[in-house]
Design a protein around this nucleic acid. Structure first.
Length: 421
RNA sequence: GCCGGGAUGGGGUAGCCUGGUAUCCUGUGGGACUGUGGAUCCCUAGACCCGAGUUCAAAUCUCGGUCCCGGCCCCA
């Protein structure tokens, strides 16, 4: 027996139905906001990902040399490919450029709850502008998607990485030390952050203030204690979000994110009931294009962890509407078998989902089968009715039967399609 | 990379401590019932994660590996 590689999953019909359903809701919502779908390759030059975040990331990438000696990696995320695509070919589209994408990503990590080596992301980028409206637009879309798919127990925490960056810069922290300190602050590891800040030359007062900032969370009013440009910027963002009727929203200046390239607002959506892997979406504004050889262009985007989102929905009792075939066509005996296929083909041409007996089962078994696949109706093709050019249509829920002339069958099935159940 | 708990037909399980090739439920296929389902009964097929060791004998004990679950690290 050959088994699945570690950290990967197979998806059965029920699961795929649920996944496609949720995915289509996300797509539709993004399209409603004026975003259009793109797709990029599953593998890229490893350099694309090491450029922006350093070689330590290589440890978690599925990287390898291809037969031409190129350093290739399965994509660990989708933002960098999207921006590469933008720089390469999309830079001349009208701005703001609003794109979204979805697909599998790969990270060589220890699998655990809500964490896989092959996982799926759904992300968007709004490229070419950075102001409170564009940031709010992206956050509003993230929230709308969560609402549209019916997720309830989520919260959005919005921060502004510029506040901390400025603070550290003003205090004279050298550029290369900033990410290290930010990382500790992100994890709230103050015991480790404080010595680092001292070492970087910060005085007691600014250290205290810095930690104070990371602990600020709550309604917009907490910004009163901050002041500065970032404050008014965030207030404007929240103003637009309020006008857009986005809820489940709070300020949290402790939101930092692991990425170095974020410059402005940053936000995360998490679902507390998921435990350790509770973050279902992360995003912010950044500029990456210049790293890939393009002009410097600001963008705001987010990535939704598709798998975790589904786990969260499942925990809330979500069930995808089951796709069912409209009718199951049952020949009674061998004599009408070929006629049954004729009728099935005719129904399918009319766009009516039809299944037909392929097991040569008797009528009783076929009805049982029709029930188990959830067919709404059974079309019983028997010699008696065929004698006068008709078939029997049985409603699988009520058990009612009607004799329908063959010519009227598609119309009957279509016309009453939404009734019953 | 680290720590803990697991792995028995497709799904769910009993058996494991105290070694003697496996229980039950459900699902699959067939039949009772070759023109009427979701009930019942019967039949059939189907499993001890992999490898090594101990033993007359291993699902059971020992070791190694793989995978899963939960947590740490990390999360671009």
């Amino acid at each position: 027996m050959i088994r699945r590689p570690r950290g990967t999953r197979d998806f059965g019909p029920d699961e795929m139905e649920a996944r496609r359903y949720i995915e289509s809701l996300m797509r539709r919502e993004a399209e409603t906001f004026g975003f259009r779908e793109i797709a990029t390759p599953v593998f890229e030059h490893a350099e694309l990902f090491t450029l922006k975040s350093g070689p330590n990331i290589l440890a978690e990438m599925y990287a390898f040399l291809d037969k031409g000696g190129r350093e290739i990696t399965l994509r660990p995320e989708l933002t960098a490919p999207a921006i590469r695509f933008f720089v390469n070919e999309l830079a001349e589209l009208p701005r703001p450029l609003k794109i979204f994408y979805t697909g599998p990503c790969f990270r060589y990590e220890r699998p655990q709850s809500g964490r896989f080596r092959e996982f799926y992301q759904f992300g968007v980028e709004l490229i070419g502008v950075q102001n409170p409206e564009s940031d709010a637009e992206v956050i509003a879309l993230a929230a709308s998607i969560m609402d549209r798919i019916g997720l309830k127990g989520y919260r959005i925490r919005v921060g502004h990485i510029g506040i901390l960056r400025d603070k550290l810069k003003v205090a004279g922290v050298p550029g290369e030390t900033v990410p290290v300190i930010l990382q500790k602050l992100d994890k709230k590891l103050y015991d480790e952050a404080v010595p680092l800040m001292k070492e970087a030359g910060m005085d007691e007062k600014s250290i205290e203030e810095t930690i104070g900032i990371t602990e600020m969370s709550g309604p917009v009013s907490v910004l009163e204690e901050v002041g500065g440009e970032a404050k008014s910027y965030l207030e404007e963002v929240f103003g637009v979000l309020e006008a857009s009727k986005v809820s489940n929203l709070q300020i949290d200046l402790g939101v930092i994110r692991g990425l170095d390239y974020y410059t402005g607002i940053v936000f995360e959506i998490d679902v507390p009931k998921l435990g350790a892997e509770k973050q279902v979406c992360g995003g912010g504004s950044y500029s990456l294009s210049e790293l890939f050889g393009g002009e410097k262009v600001f963008s705001t985007g987010f990535a939704i962890g598709f798998d975790r989102t589904l786990i969260a929905l499942a925990k809330e009792g979500f069930e995808a509407p089951r796709r069912r075939v409209e009718v199951h066509v049952i020949p009674v005996g061998d004599a009408t078998r070929s006629k049954a296929f004729e009728i099935t083909a005719m129904l399918r041409k009319e766009g009516i989902g039809a299944d037909v007996d392929l097991m040569r089962r008797n009528l009783a078994k076929n009805l049982k089968y029709a029930d188990s696949i959830g067919a709404r109706r059974a079309v019983i093709v028997g010699e008696k009715e065929l004698g006068f050019g008709a078939v029997t249509v049985r409603d699988m829920v009520s058990g009612e039967q009607t004799t329908i002339p063959l010519g009227d069958l598609p119309g009957y099935l279509k016309g009453t399609r939404d009734f019953g159940v």
